[in-house]
Amino acid sequence: MKRAAAWAVLFLGIAYFVLPLIGMVEFSLSMKRGVYSFEAYRVVFADPRFRETFTYSVVMALLTIAFGIVLVVPTAFWVRLKMPGLRPYVEFVTLLPLVIPAIVTVFGYIRLYNTSSWLPMTGSIFGTNLLLMFGYATLSLPYMYRAVDTGLRAIDVPTLTEAAQSLGAGWVTILARVILPNVLVAVLSGAFVTFAIVMGEFTMAALLNRPAFGPYLQLMGANRAYEPFALATIAFLITWACMGLMQLVTRFSKHQGAR
């Protein structure tokens, strides 16, 4: 009786999650009347704007990941090693992007860094791209920082540092060749979340007027019948791949740790 109820709840829940995905895929395959076809995908892939925005977002995601690593790894390392008293405060700050909605942050950017301000970042394309990347970096900060910090918890930071120092390593060598390889799994899992976030992000890119994948999706949704569903399916696959890879990497590391 109890088990039957549990199955029923689970079944209903899964139906709720699966139906929209089926609906989405079904629509994306229905561009040709009466038969299933990949026509919508063909049209999407042939659209130069798809390639442009998709490439733009991939590049931005990779840059955001690189920037995030350079920003977060040394900071988390340094805080653990030298300033453990600051840890709760740093952690609190890294969680702020979960509290402050992205639309508010980007609103602040537009008002703070517009063409008539002291740092006119939105005045040039390069500056706006940079600003958008910083915005993405703040969005991914909670995930990146937590991942790296958890990774650092698993290793003996002071001993490793001392050992490297006694062998004559400088700070850059310690970070790049001792700490980073040891927290690589954590960094990777943070990187996959970052990738998923950036690929799907809409608000910041739209308000900063950059040609990213998210705003393109929204534009297609407003103007086309079948292509948006092909794009949504692609976006879902990207999210799925990122999260799947993250799980895989984490499981692999646990396996390794057990040996």
């Binding site: 976030i197 879902f236 999260m243």
Partner: peptide, 29 residues
């Protein structure tokens, strides 16, 4: 749990399309 991780991150524009395709005027359901 894995699916929950994916779905909790699958927000935004694509999610809206998925529901339009399901419960919209011409949606599956």
């Amino acid at each position: 749990m894995t699916f929950s991780g994916v779905a909790s991150n699958f927000a935004g524009v694509p999610l809206a399309f998925a529901f339009l395709a399901t419960l919209g005027p011409l949606g599956l359901v």
